Deep mutational scan, measured.
Amino acid sequence: MEVRTIKVFTTVDNINLHTQVVDMSMTYGQQFGPTYLDGADVTKIKPHNSHEGKTFYVLPNDDTLRVEAFEYYHTTDPSFLGRYMSALNHTKKWKYPQVNGLTSIKWADNNCYLATALLTLQQIELKFNPPALQDAYYRARAGEAANFCALILAYCNKTVGELGDVRETMSYLFQHANLDSCKRVLNVVCKTCGQQQTTLKGVEAVMYMGTLSYEQFKKGVQIPCTCGKQATKYLVQQESPFVMMSAPPAQYELKHGTFTCASEYTGNYQCGHYKHITSKETLYCIDGALLTKSSEYKGPITDVFYKENSYTTTIK
């Protein structure tokens, strides 16, 4: 009895394709271990004539594949690729409408935090270190965002349907971005203890939790000093293409032309909904596939993004 075979390709990165001759009487799992086709788990399936010449994702289970996976995804987590594939199996079914010149995501599976993050990423200057993220990001900007969303979920250790947080998501993504040249110098002034300067680099240099107003941050924000008295913390120097200011959701007025974009969060910790506000020729609110415009805006804002380049204080 002759062994019926077909020729397929296996890959971990969709760049390096490895030619395989597979036995049609055995499952993919018996031949390769966990195997995925377009995100779908085909591990328990036997090869079919229609699979001839198709590319299958496999887990990096030998040295060659491990090197290829690390170079593309910059992670050695053995569960990463499987999590990416199972997320992709959902995100490829989502709709990605162009809204006001940006790629958004039609609401499904509690994905409003991903839509808000995706919209924000198209408006701030950011370059990702893992080629996987950078490639998928370019495709997302062009309207094909399924891979990018699935990668975000995998890097953030999230599953489809789980509630997510924009600030946490951005923080994970910033860790995989090139923020080497970003720098922030802060000064804390206390009447009792004097003053202390701190220099922050990388992710810490672009994120701040405690106030939404970048102007206020430049002037000074009140913080408790270690001595128990009130101290003032203010920005001395900022070198970065953008800054992200966050605070627990509270009524906040966004003035046209003073910011790049913002995240609105309605609801409580267990259950809520994100919308995205962007400042173009007027203010726009993007909620999944829905767009509304207004000249002014007041609502429960939790993150505001500002364009920056270089700032030095005039406070002496």
Rank of each mutant, 00 (worst) to 15 (best):
Y269R: 15
T55Q: 07
A69D: 08
T258H: 09
S310F: 09
N268G: 15
T120A: 14
T302H: 00
N49M: 10
A262C: 02
L283H: 00
C182T: 04
I301T: 01
T120V: 13
A177H: 03
D135L: 09
H48Q: 15
Y234W: 09
R66P: 07
F217I: 15
C227T: 02
K93R: 12
E125P: 11
R139S: 13
A250N: 12
A136R: 03
L291H: 15
K298N: 14
Q123G: 05
E281N: 08
V21E: 13
W94N: 03
V304Q: 00
E144L: 08
L290N: 15
Y306F: 05
G143A: 04
Q222W: 06
Q251H: 15
T199I: 11
V8T: 08
R184S: 14
P249A: 01
Y306S: 00
W94G: 02
T75P: 05
R4A: 13
Y36L: 04
I286R: 05
A177Q: 03
D13V: 05
Q195F: 11
T226V: 13
Q251M: 15
Y28W: 11
Y57K: 05
N309R: 13
Y172K: 13
T199H: 11
T198H: 14
L114R: 05
T55H: 11
V185C: 05
E168F: 06
L81Y: 08
I124P: 03
T313E: 12
L114H: 02
T10S: 09
H74Q: 14
Y265H: 00
T120N: 12
S246M: 04
K201A: 08
C190D: 00
G143D: 03
L254S: 00
F174T: 03
E125T: 08
K106T: 15
T266L: 12
S86F: 07
Q222N: 11
F217P: 01
H74I: 04
T169A: 06
M85F: 04
N129Y: 07
R141Y: 06
A40H: 11
P34F: 12
F32M: 11
S50H: 09
E281D: 13
G39S: 14
A87M: 06
Q30F: 06
D287Q: 01
H51R: 04
E281F: 02
Q238I: 01
G161M: 06
E264M: 10
Q251W: 13
H273P: 00
K93C: 07
Q123H: 07
Q122S: 03
V67I: 14
D23C: 14
C112G: 00
L200F: 12
G228V: 02
N100Q: 11
G288P: 02
P47H: 02
